[in-house]
Computed example of a mutant assay.
Amino acid sequence: MTVTIRPATPADLPLIADLIRALADYEKLADAVRFDEAVLGAKLFGARPYAEVIIGEVDGAAQGFALFFHNFSTFEGRPGIYLEDLFVRPEARGSGLGKALLSQLAALAVERDCARLEWSVLDWNEPAIGFYRKLGARLMDEWTVMRVDGAALERLGAGAGESA
């Protein structure tokens, strides 16, 4: 069994879309997937890419991906890599592909002088949490994720420039 990791190209867009949908199914969030494939492609491979994707293959067949982007730590004064999505198809789990994807991201973080590699995991996903812990990751229990989206984002953005 041969595991390889490669950067995604624009030709991989249908594959990336399929893997995102498969991840959403696994996470029981299929109804939350709303992307337009053309817009996704423009955001990943256009003039100003907002994220990067690596593809994981087992014996030449694409079986997983990682989508990531840079964030920045003011305390460290250096960038980090934020892993938005990591997914390995069920038939390829146990092949070492998940570890290979994360190892590639760690190598990129070191190469790019990043202070850290971080991501979120659903609290019910015990298999993933156990896997990440075995790789040396730790839970950041003292932090709570916050989000503004949809109509609330529109309302908040409409108030830009107003004084409090």
Rank of each mutant, 00 (worst) to 15 (best):
T2L: 15
T2R: 14
V3T: 15
I5F: 09
I5N: 09
R6Q: 11
P7V: 05
A11V: 05
A11Y: 02
I16V: 15
L19C: 07
L23Y: 07
A32Q: 15
A32I: 00
F35E: 07
F35C: 05
E37I: 03
A38C: 08
L40A: 12
A42W: 04
K43Q: 15
A51H: 12
E52M: 07
V53F: 05
V53C: 13
I54T: 10
I54C: 06
I54M: 08
E57G: 04
D59Q: 02
G60L: 08
G60K: 05
G64T: 05
F65T: 00
F75W: 15
G77P: 03
G77F: 05
R78P: 01
G80K: 01
Y82H: 05
D85E: 13
L86R: 00
V88E: 04
R93E: 05
R93Y: 04
G94S: 12
G98C: 11
Q104T: 15
A109E: 06
R112H: 10
C114K: 02
A115C: 13
R116A: 02
E118W: 11
V121M: 09
L122S: 03
W124K: 09
N125S: 10
P127Q: 09
G130D: 12
F131M: 06
R133H: 13
K134A: 15
K134R: 15
L135E: 04
A137P: 09
W143N: 09
A152Q: 13
A152N: 08
E154N: 02
E162C: 05
